[in-house]
Protein backbone atom coordinates (compact mmCIF):
# COMPACT_ATOMS: atom_id res chain seq x y z
CA UNK A 1 0.00 0.00 0.00
CA UNK A 2 1.40 3.35 -0.99
CA UNK A 3 -0.87 5.20 1.43
CA UNK A 4 -1.87 4.24 4.99
CA UNK A 5 -5.13 2.26 4.86
CA UNK A 6 -8.25 3.55 6.61
CA UNK A 7 -9.27 -0.01 7.43
CA UNK A 8 -6.55 -2.62 7.77
CA UNK A 9 -7.43 -6.23 8.53
CA UNK A 10 -4.63 -8.71 9.07
CA UNK A 11 -4.68 -12.46 9.77
CA UNK A 12 -8.32 -12.54 10.84
CA UNK A 13 -9.50 -15.92 12.16
CA UNK A 14 -13.10 -16.41 13.25
CA UNK A 15 -14.92 -19.47 14.50
CA UNK A 16 -18.60 -20.26 15.09
CA UNK A 17 -18.34 -22.87 17.79
CA UNK A 18 -15.96 -25.37 16.24
CA UNK A 19 -16.58 -24.32 12.65
CA UNK A 20 -13.64 -22.39 11.24
CA UNK A 21 -15.21 -19.61 9.19
CA UNK A 22 -12.39 -17.17 8.49
CA UNK A 23 -8.76 -18.22 8.05
CA UNK A 24 -6.30 -15.36 7.90
CA UNK A 25 -8.40 -12.77 6.09
CA UNK A 26 -6.40 -9.74 4.91
CA UNK A 27 -7.97 -6.54 3.67
CA UNK A 28 -6.78 -2.97 3.24
CA UNK A 29 -9.19 -0.20 2.30
CA UNK A 30 -7.89 3.29 1.52
CA UNK A 31 -9.72 6.54 2.08
CA UNK A 32 -12.30 7.33 -0.56
CA UNK A 33 -12.23 3.90 -2.19
CA UNK A 34 -15.17 1.67 -2.96
CA UNK A 35 -13.97 -1.91 -2.53
CA UNK A 36 -16.02 -5.03 -3.12
CA UNK A 37 -15.63 -8.34 -1.32
CA UNK A 38 -16.85 -10.99 -3.73
CA UNK A 39 -17.61 -14.60 -2.94
CA UNK A 40 -20.23 -17.29 -3.06
CA UNK A 41 -22.75 -18.04 -0.37
CA UNK A 42 -21.06 -19.14 2.83
CA UNK A 43 -17.61 -17.97 1.72
CA UNK A 44 -17.23 -15.72 4.77
CA UNK A 45 -18.28 -12.28 3.51
CA UNK A 46 -20.81 -11.52 6.24
CA UNK A 47 -18.61 -13.00 8.92
CA UNK A 48 -15.74 -10.74 7.82
CA UNK A 49 -17.96 -7.70 8.24
CA UNK A 50 -19.36 -8.83 11.57
CA UNK A 51 -15.86 -9.52 12.83
CA UNK A 52 -14.69 -6.05 11.83
CA UNK A 53 -17.74 -4.55 13.53
CA UNK A 54 -17.18 -6.46 16.76
CA UNK A 55 -20.46 -8.36 16.45
CA UNK A 56 -18.50 -11.59 16.27
CA UNK A 57 -15.34 -11.96 18.27
CA UNK A 58 -12.39 -13.02 16.13
CA UNK A 59 -10.10 -15.71 17.57
CA UNK A 60 -6.98 -14.16 16.09
CA UNK A 61 -5.88 -11.28 13.90
CA UNK A 62 -5.75 -7.54 14.08
CA UNK A 63 -8.18 -4.92 12.87
CA UNK A 64 -7.00 -1.34 12.60
CA UNK A 65 -9.32 1.51 11.79
CA UNK A 66 -7.84 4.94 11.16
CA UNK A 67 -4.65 3.86 12.86
CA UNK A 68 -6.30 2.58 16.05
CA UNK A 69 -6.55 -1.06 17.04
CA UNK A 70 -10.25 -2.00 17.29
CA UNK A 71 -9.83 -5.77 17.51
CA UNK A 72 -12.38 -7.19 19.96
CA UNK A 73 -13.87 -3.77 20.79
CA UNK A 74 -17.62 -3.81 21.47
CA UNK A 75 -19.79 -2.82 18.46
CA UNK A 76 -20.94 0.53 19.85
CA UNK A 77 -17.34 1.68 20.29
CA UNK A 78 -16.46 0.59 16.78
CA UNK A 79 -19.49 2.46 15.48
CA UNK A 80 -18.50 5.58 17.41
CA UNK A 81 -15.13 5.61 15.76
CA UNK A 82 -16.92 6.19 12.48
CA UNK A 83 -17.36 2.69 11.12
CA UNK A 84 -20.90 2.18 9.85
CA UNK A 85 -22.45 -1.24 9.34
CA UNK A 86 -25.38 -2.14 7.11
CA UNK A 87 -26.44 -5.73 7.73
CA UNK A 88 -27.44 -8.11 4.98
CA UNK A 89 -30.84 -8.80 6.52
CA UNK A 90 -31.49 -5.04 6.94
CA UNK A 91 -32.72 -5.31 10.51
CA UNK A 92 -35.08 -2.39 10.31
CA UNK A 93 -36.82 -1.60 13.61
CA UNK A 94 -40.23 -2.71 12.43
CA UNK A 95 -42.34 -0.78 14.97
CA UNK A 96 -40.43 2.47 14.51
CA UNK A 97 -41.26 4.97 11.79
CA UNK A 98 -38.79 5.93 9.09
CA UNK A 99 -37.85 9.08 11.01
CA UNK A 100 -37.42 7.14 14.24
CA UNK A 101 -35.26 4.53 12.54
CA UNK A 102 -33.05 7.37 11.33
CA UNK A 103 -32.98 8.89 14.83
CA UNK A 104 -31.61 5.67 16.31
CA UNK A 105 -28.68 5.86 13.90
CA UNK A 106 -27.90 9.51 14.59
CA UNK A 107 -24.48 10.43 15.96
CA UNK A 108 -22.60 13.70 16.23
CA UNK A 109 -20.95 15.11 13.10
CA UNK A 110 -17.49 13.69 12.63
CA UNK A 111 -14.38 15.34 11.33
CA UNK A 112 -13.17 13.94 8.04
CA UNK A 113 -16.52 12.37 7.22
CA UNK A 114 -19.51 13.62 5.28
CA UNK A 115 -22.35 14.85 7.51
CA UNK A 116 -25.88 13.66 6.96
CA UNK A 117 -29.32 14.85 7.90
CA UNK A 118 -32.66 13.21 7.08
CA UNK A 119 -33.32 15.87 4.44
CA UNK A 120 -29.99 15.28 2.75
CA UNK A 121 -30.56 11.52 2.83
CA UNK A 122 -33.99 11.93 1.27
CA UNK A 123 -32.25 13.52 -1.73
CA UNK A 124 -30.35 10.29 -2.29
CA UNK A 125 -33.26 8.02 -1.38
CA UNK A 126 -36.31 9.99 -2.56
CA UNK A 127 -38.70 7.09 -1.93
CA UNK A 128 -38.14 7.49 1.81
CA UNK A 129 -39.16 11.14 1.84
CA UNK A 130 -42.75 10.22 1.08
CA UNK A 131 -43.08 7.78 3.99
CA UNK A 132 -41.54 9.53 6.98
CA UNK A 133 -44.15 8.31 9.44
CA UNK A 134 -44.53 4.80 8.05
CA UNK A 135 -43.47 1.96 10.37
CA UNK A 136 -40.44 0.07 9.11
CA UNK A 137 -42.36 -3.18 9.12
CA UNK A 138 -44.73 -1.89 6.46
CA UNK A 139 -42.15 -1.07 3.81
CA UNK A 140 -41.10 -3.07 0.78
CA UNK A 141 -37.77 -4.87 0.69
CA UNK A 142 -36.23 -2.21 -1.51
CA UNK A 143 -37.46 0.62 0.71
CA UNK A 144 -36.11 -1.18 3.76
CA UNK A 145 -32.75 -1.55 2.05
CA UNK A 146 -32.66 2.21 1.39
CA UNK A 147 -33.67 2.91 4.98
CA UNK A 148 -31.07 0.63 6.50
CA UNK A 149 -28.32 2.43 4.56
CA UNK A 150 -29.74 5.85 5.42
CA UNK A 151 -29.98 4.85 9.08
CA UNK A 152 -26.30 3.92 9.19
CA UNK A 153 -25.34 7.12 7.37
CA UNK A 154 -27.05 9.13 10.14
CA UNK A 155 -24.05 8.14 12.27
CA UNK A 156 -21.83 10.18 9.89
CA UNK A 157 -19.41 7.32 9.31
CA UNK A 158 -16.02 7.59 7.66
CA UNK A 159 -16.30 4.08 6.27
CA UNK A 160 -19.42 2.03 5.67
CA UNK A 161 -19.64 -1.75 5.52
CA UNK A 162 -22.44 -2.74 3.13
CA UNK A 163 -23.36 -6.39 3.34
CA UNK A 164 -24.89 -7.53 0.01
CA UNK A 165 -26.88 -4.37 -0.71
CA UNK A 166 -28.32 -5.69 -3.99
CA UNK A 167 -29.56 -9.00 -2.63
CA UNK A 168 -33.17 -9.80 -3.38
CA UNK A 169 -33.94 -6.43 -4.97
CA UNK A 170 -35.78 -5.77 -8.21
CA UNK A 171 -33.48 -4.70 -11.11
CA UNK A 172 -34.80 -1.14 -11.10
CA UNK A 173 -34.04 -0.82 -7.37
CA UNK A 174 -30.59 -2.33 -7.87
CA UNK A 175 -29.93 0.43 -10.36
CA UNK A 176 -31.01 3.09 -7.84
CA UNK A 177 -28.78 1.44 -5.26
CA UNK A 178 -25.80 1.63 -7.58
CA UNK A 179 -26.44 5.32 -8.15
CA UNK A 180 -26.72 5.87 -4.42
CA UNK A 181 -23.37 4.22 -3.76
CA UNK A 182 -21.69 6.26 -6.46
CA UNK A 183 -23.18 9.38 -4.87
CA UNK A 184 -21.86 8.33 -1.45
CA UNK A 185 -18.41 7.94 -2.93
CA UNK A 186 -18.61 11.41 -4.41
CA UNK A 187 -19.40 12.75 -0.93
CA UNK A 188 -16.08 11.32 0.22
CA UNK A 189 -17.32 8.19 1.96
CA UNK A 190 -15.19 5.06 1.93
CA UNK A 191 -17.15 1.87 1.20
CA UNK A 192 -16.53 -1.83 1.64
CA UNK A 193 -19.37 -3.83 0.18
CA UNK A 194 -19.85 -7.54 -0.15
CA UNK A 195 -21.53 -8.95 -3.23
CA UNK A 196 -22.32 -12.03 -5.23
CA UNK A 197 -23.64 -9.93 -8.06
CA UNK A 198 -20.59 -9.17 -10.20
CA UNK A 199 -22.55 -6.94 -12.54
CA UNK A 200 -23.58 -4.69 -9.66
CA UNK A 201 -20.11 -4.75 -8.11
CA UNK A 202 -18.59 -3.65 -11.38
CA UNK A 203 -20.84 -0.59 -11.59
CA UNK A 204 -19.73 0.84 -8.27
CA UNK A 205 -16.34 -0.56 -7.18
CA UNK A 206 -12.74 0.47 -7.71
CA UNK A 207 -11.13 -2.69 -6.43
CA UNK A 208 -12.16 -6.24 -5.58
CA UNK A 209 -11.22 -9.01 -3.20
CA UNK A 210 -12.45 -12.57 -3.69
CA UNK A 211 -13.03 -14.70 -0.64
CA UNK A 212 -13.53 -18.43 -0.70
CA UNK A 213 -13.83 -20.82 2.25
CA UNK A 214 -12.68 -18.07 4.60
CA UNK A 215 -9.53 -17.15 2.68
CA UNK A 216 -8.79 -14.22 0.41
CA UNK A 217 -7.99 -15.77 -2.99
CA UNK A 218 -7.68 -12.76 -5.22
CA UNK A 219 -7.26 -9.03 -5.10
CA UNK A 220 -6.98 -6.48 -7.87
CA UNK A 221 -8.73 -3.63 -9.60
CA UNK A 222 -12.20 -4.28 -10.86
CA UNK A 223 -10.92 -3.81 -14.42
CA UNK A 224 -8.26 -6.48 -13.92
CA UNK A 225 -10.85 -8.87 -12.52
CA UNK A 226 -13.17 -8.29 -15.44
CA UNK A 227 -10.29 -9.13 -17.78
CA UNK A 228 -9.40 -12.35 -15.93
CA UNK A 229 -11.97 -14.87 -16.97
CA UNK A 230 -10.14 -17.80 -15.35
CA UNK A 231 -10.35 -16.27 -11.87
CA UNK A 232 -14.02 -15.43 -12.25
CA UNK A 233 -14.79 -18.94 -13.46
CA UNK A 234 -12.89 -20.51 -10.59
CA UNK A 235 -14.30 -18.49 -7.70
CA UNK A 236 -17.47 -16.78 -8.74
CA UNK A 237 -19.44 -18.81 -11.24
CA UNK A 238 -22.13 -20.90 -9.70
Amino acid sequence: MDEAALLDVAGLDTYYGRAHILAGVELAIRRGEVVVLLGRNGAGKSTTMKSVMGLVRPAAGRIEFDGADITGAPPHQVARRGLGYVPEDRRIFSDLSVMENLEVGRQRPREGAPSWSPEKLFEIFPNLAAMRARPGGRMSGGEQQMLTIARTLMGNPRLILLDEPSEGLAPVIVEQMAKAIIRLKSEGLTVLLSEQNLHFARLVSDRAYIIEKGRIRYQGTIAALMADEAVRAQYLSV
Partner: peptide, 13 residues
Protein backbone atom coordinates in the same frame (compact mmCIF):
# COMPACT_ATOMS: atom_id res chain seq x y z
CA UNK B 1 -35.42 0.06 19.09
CA UNK B 2 -33.45 -2.01 21.60
CA UNK B 3 -36.61 -3.92 22.50
CA UNK B 4 -36.79 -4.99 18.86
CA UNK B 5 -33.11 -5.63 18.09
CA UNK B 6 -30.54 -4.63 20.68
CA UNK B 7 -27.55 -5.89 18.72
CA UNK B 8 -28.43 -3.64 15.80
CA UNK B 9 -28.79 -0.71 18.19
CA UNK B 10 -25.27 -1.39 19.44
CA UNK B 11 -23.96 -1.59 15.88
CA UNK B 12 -25.38 1.90 15.37
CA UNK B 13 -23.19 3.25 18.15
Amino acid sequence: AATLDREMVAALG
